[in-house]
């Protein structure tokens, strides 16, 4: 139950998700509850980032499991997911009714181009942190073109990129 409440709080008070959650997780899990040491949390963040799925959920599963086994992992996950689930559901039910409202329509016509910009802007920041240079810039370029123009599913792109990285590293790079 303590796990549920703690992660419920983390889920409820972070907007924007992902990395915005790290300071709050640190505050709750390391400083307040002392479930993990600061160094353990750093390791966990690295692992959770390299795992598929939702970052905050991955953290809550790990911490929950460490504390109370399967049941703890379940309660931690439920805590992280529940605020999102309830808030979004409420919004979805309300928004469904006002969707045809001309004012709401105008507001969202203004918001849509901004959303596109908010997705486009981190591309360059991510390119820096993924260490994109002139030798590997073809990888994101080919991936983007395949999805954008050829309609290839991003799932296949991820699969191929992961296998490509593995094969290249294991068999080609060191020869």
């Amino acid at each position: 139950m303590e796990l549920f409440i703690t992660f419920f709080r983390i889920g409820l008070f972070t907007i924007g998700g992902g990395y915005a959650m790290i300071p709050l997780i640190e505050e709750q899990v390391v400083r307040r509850k002392q479930w993990l040491s600061s160094a353990e949390l750093m390791d966990l963040i690295a692992v959770a980032q390299s795992c598929p799925g939702i970052f905050a959920v991955n953290i809550s599963i790990f911490v929950g499991y460490k504390r109370r086994g399967l049941w703890g992992a379940f309660m931690g996950t439920l805590g992280t997911v529940m605020p999102s689930f309830l808030i979004i559901l409420a919004i979805a039910l309300i928004f469904q009714q006002y969707r045809q409202n001309p004012y709401v329509e105008r507001i969202f016509r203004g918001i849509r181009p901004a959303v596109v910009a908010l997705i486009a802007a981190p591309v360059f920041r991510m390119a820096q942190s993924a260490k994109i240079n002139r030798y590997n810039v073809w990888i994101p370029a080919v991936a983007a073109l395949a999805i954008w123009l050829l309609g290839v599913s991003p799932i296949y792109v991820i699969l191929i990129a992961g296998m490509g990285g593995y094969v290249y590293g294991q068999y080609i790079k060191n020869e």
Partner: peptide, 21 residues
């Protein structure tokens, strides 16, 4: 090694999402 391939591809994923929108 797997992540060395994944990371640049994720950048492409994001670029494609923006282009499609």
């Amino acid at each position: 090694n797997t992540f060395a391939g994944l990371r640049p591809a994720v950048v492409g994923l994001l670029a494609a999402a923006a282009l499609l929108l």
